[in-house]
Every structure is written in structure tokens, then in C-alpha cells.
Design a protein around this nucleic acid. Structure first.
Lengths: 119, 119
DNA sequence: CGCTTCGTACGATAGACCTCGTAGTACGGC
DNA sequence: GCCGTACTACGAGGTCTATCGTACGAAGCG
């Protein structure tokens, strides 16, 4: 009952409820370089970003796929705004479920990025 | 050159060097329930454990596979001791590369376990 | 109403992954 | 030397995943 159900006639998207978020799913989502990159940009910006804001080295189809995986694993929340689809980290939910995990993950990603010199 | 190379004639196992450990690989390794379970047991025990110590609901072949993934991703270190193969968390390497990550991950797993498994 | 932009759905493909069973190797004890 | 234990290697089956291309839908602008 807690899962966000799309309102009839609208363009809402199905998200897992707070307590439906599984650690394995989050780790799986973040284990992909493309998705980790998306999450890092989202965290760096701190606010909502449209899908088209990301300039990923894959086609739009694949980008849609990755955003869907992130949403279905509970990492991001997606909402339509006109023709754009806005993406935001579910920081509150993740911090409540797994305190410190997201920050540790982002710090680890930043550290590795600095170490490997790729950004 | 830093990767541990198996000595000729011995039974040493190839491990990724400290700086070869990649965050995505670690996350991928830990995204599997069976492997997460192994790592949790390893962390709980705090010392080396033989493969046969684990009573996983899969065959021995599959168990071997999971331990290999954990080793090749840099999460555990494996050494032979007689006929047994001992497994230990690479805590030092992981804590140095990704400070706080392993603890956050283990805490998250424990939290979820308490929340879902009711035990 | 057209046109553009943004994103989706569907099908296909190639590769990765989890699992298994069987056969095989290494070590230690008798 | 022989046997049991511990683990491995190889191959196969079935599923999942990442990627693409093309065709489509929804919202805004002229």
C-alpha cells in the first residue's frame, strides 16, 4: 500500500516504497559505471536534473533504461515536468534506510575518480 | 606489476593489487545475496574462514564461483592451507581505498536483515 | 495544425551471470 | 601406494543485462 501508485490519467511513474528498497538492488544499480556516473552528477548538483542534462556516451534508449533501473531500485525519484523528466536522488529514503551508505559510496566514487584521473 | 603473481609450482592465487580494486567491481560483487552473506559472515567472524565453513544453499561449484568473484573483485583474500582454502576480508585495502564504505555496507546489510528477516 | 524536443516501447543481439553436474587435481592420513 | 576430503575446471542451460535502432507518444511553440 505504500508503493507510489501512478494516478489515473496522469503521467506519474511507479516507484518502490521506502521499505521496499533493497540493498542488493541499490548495489546492483550502482555497480554500473553509467549509472554510478548519473548518481554522482545528481549528488553533485544537489537538485533535480532532467534526463537530457546528462551527456552519456550511449543512445537515448539506453539512457532511458539506466534511469529506469535507478528508479526501480529506489535510488532516484522521477517526475514529469512538461516534456522533461526530472530526476532526484532519494537521499532521505536512502539515508533513513542505510545511514551513511550513500555518502560513503559517493566519497568512494570521488576518491577513485581522483585516483584514476578520469575526473 | 603490483598484482600478486602466483609463484611457479605453488598454489598461490591471483589477487588484484591494492590499486587495481575498482569500486564498480566491489559493488557488483556485493550486489549478490549469496556473496553479501559470505562477506557478512567473514566480517562477523573477523578472521579467516575456510570455504567449507559456509553452509550456502547452492552447490560447491557455485560456492567456488562466488568466492572467486569476491577474490577477483578485491573483496577477499584467499590462501591455501593444506586442503582447505582460507578466506579473509581485505579490510585494510578496502578501508584505505574507500574509507567507511565497508562499514557502511555491513551496517546497511545488518539493518536490512533486522528489518526484513525479523531475526 | 504542423514541427520540434524529450522521452518511451518494442524487438533484436551479444555478452555476462548464476546455477548445476561431472570429472579432475592437490593435500593429508593410513 | 591408496583413499577420503577440499576445492577446481569445464561445459551447459536458462536467465538477465546493456546496447542499439526504429517507431511511437506527450508537451510546448509557431
Amino acid at each position: 500500500m505504500t508503493a507510489t501508485v501512478p494516478a489515473p490519467g496522469s503521467r506519474a511513474l511507479p516507484h518502490p516504497a521506502h521499505e521496499e528498497i533493497r540493498l542488493e538492488g541499490v548495489l546492483h544499480a550502482l555497480a554500473d559505471p553509467m549509472r554510478l556516473r548519473i548518481v554522482r552528477e545528481l549528488a553533485a548538483d544537489g537538485d533535480e536534473l532532467s534526463c537530457s542534462h546528462f551527456d552519456l556516451p550511449v543512445t537515448k534508449s539506453t539512457t532511458t533504461h539506466h534511469f529506469r533501473v535507478l528508479r526501480e531500485s529506489g535510488v532516484i525519484r522521477q517526475t514529469y515536468r512538461g516534456t522533461a523528466k526530472m530526476n532526484a536522488l532519494r537521499r532521505d529514503d536512502l539515508d533513513d534506510l542505510f545511514p551513511g551508505l550513500l555518502d560513503a559510496l559517493l566519497a568512494a566514487a570521488a576518491r577513485q575518480s581522483a585516483r584514476l584521473g578520469s575526473g
